[in-house]
Simulated assay, not measured.
Amino acid sequence: MNQQQKALYSYIKASKYEPSSFIAAAIIDNAKVGNIIIAEKLYSQLIRVRDIDIDLLIHVRKLVDRSRQKYKVMNEYLHDSIPKISVIVPFYNRKDKILGCINSVLNQSFGDIEIIAVDDGSTDGGNEILLEITDPRLVIIRNEKASGNSGAPRNIALKIARGEYIAFVDSDDCVELNYFSELYQCIVKNNADIAFSKWFKKINYQNGRREESKIYYKYIDRVRYINYDSFFINSFVIWDKIYRRELFHNNLIYLSESKIGADTLMIAKTYYYAKNVCMCDNKSAYKYFAFSHNSVSQLHRKNTGNLIEEDRPYREVFLWIDKFNISKDY
């Protein structure tokens, strides 16, 4: 039996019997011989298996991506298998918020998405609420033990995401109807690595009263320093933009697994390695609920003696700058 015959046989076996081990084996066999469309189709099936081993998912995803590069399979040939945008939503004990967040993404006017919701060891039953959703675009990953930071669950999702572009939504926030449609059109039109949202809505509660404000960014498309040309934007958060997935994978960019500021180094790296960025003149907004009760970062910030945790993300940035001889101007 040659490799192509073996791959076909394993695909038939996986389609017939469906245990995750058969599906994973079939993905590996087909990816090795360049049957990437079949491998992607099977991966779509594997990622929705309940209680799937996360390490297995990550291993299989890496193998398929490497095979796509080796056999130079273009995205247009995989349009039935690969979503345009992977939206990553980590959550921990968000039973009262998570459904509204996920529904705001599922109900977007732009429907070519997958949502990877990573339950980071919740104990309040939020995971069960999401399991009732039958939309096949929703993928639920569960960590049995909480990591205690917002970086670890996002990194899991980054490693298994399939979309051409990556977006992040926090579990206590939501997005308006055309938000991803506008950002997607902008990033494609400009062939950019990052598309920034021009503004967002900040929602706060003071003495039981809801306060809503519009926050606009300052953006300069070219700034000349002594030894470095760059853009400038006063945005240092993860969720107000979409990114080309290759930006993460080609430059080995992930989030820090720190209790506070897990996205600080990631933002610094994506801004540095992005070859082209664009500002979206968006009408729909990301709705940011400031200082949300029980968020991981806020819980740690409320505790005393966390100066080391506050400082850690910035130390990581300076270590990266020194290690890779990044221009001090940057």
Score class of each variant (00 low, 15 high):
Tyr11Gly: 06
Lys13Ala: 01
Lys13Asn: 02
Lys13Gln: 03
Lys13Ile: 02
Ser15Lys: 11
Lys16Gly: 05
Phe22Thr: 11
Ile23Phe: 12
Asn30Trp: 00
Leu42Arg: 14
Ser44Gln: 12
Ser44His: 07
Ile47Cys: 02
Arg48Lys: 11
Arg50Leu: 09
Ile58Gln: 06
Tyr71Ala: 07
His79Glu: 11
Ser86Tyr: 03
Ser86Glu: 02
Ile88Glu: 03
Val89Met: 00
Tyr92Met: 01
Lys95Asp: 10
Lys95Thr: 04
Ser104Thr: 00
Gly111Leu: 13
Asp119Lys: 00
Ser122Glu: 07
Glu128Trp: 03
Leu131Ile: 03
Ile133Met: 07
Arg137Leu: 02
Leu138Thr: 09
Ile141Met: 13
Glu144Cys: 10
Gly148Phe: 05
Ile156Ser: 02
Ile156Met: 00
Leu158Arg: 11
Lys159Ile: 09
Val169Glu: 09
Asp170Asn: 14
Asp172Thr: 07
Asn178Glu: 08
Asn178Trp: 01
Tyr184Gln: 05
Ala192Lys: 01
Phe196Thr: 00
Phe200Val: 04
Gly208Arg: 12
Arg209His: 15
Lys214Leu: 11
Lys214Met: 08
Lys214Pro: 04
Tyr217Leu: 06
Lys218Gly: 09
Ile233Lys: 15
Trp239Met: 03
Ile242His: 05
Phe248Val: 13
Ser256Met: 14
Lys259Leu: 10
Gly261Ser: 03
Thr264Leu: 11
Ile267Pro: 04
Ala268Lys: 15
Ala268Ile: 05
Val277Tyr: 01
Met279Asp: 05
Asp281Gln: 13
Ser284Trp: 01
Ser292Val: 07
Val296Trp: 01
Ile308Met: 05
Glu309Asp: 15
Arg312Glu: 14
Pro313Asn: 00
Arg315Pro: 08
Glu316Asp: 06
Leu319Cys: 12
Leu319Pro: 04
Lys323Asn: 14
Phe324Lys: 14
Asp329Glu: 13
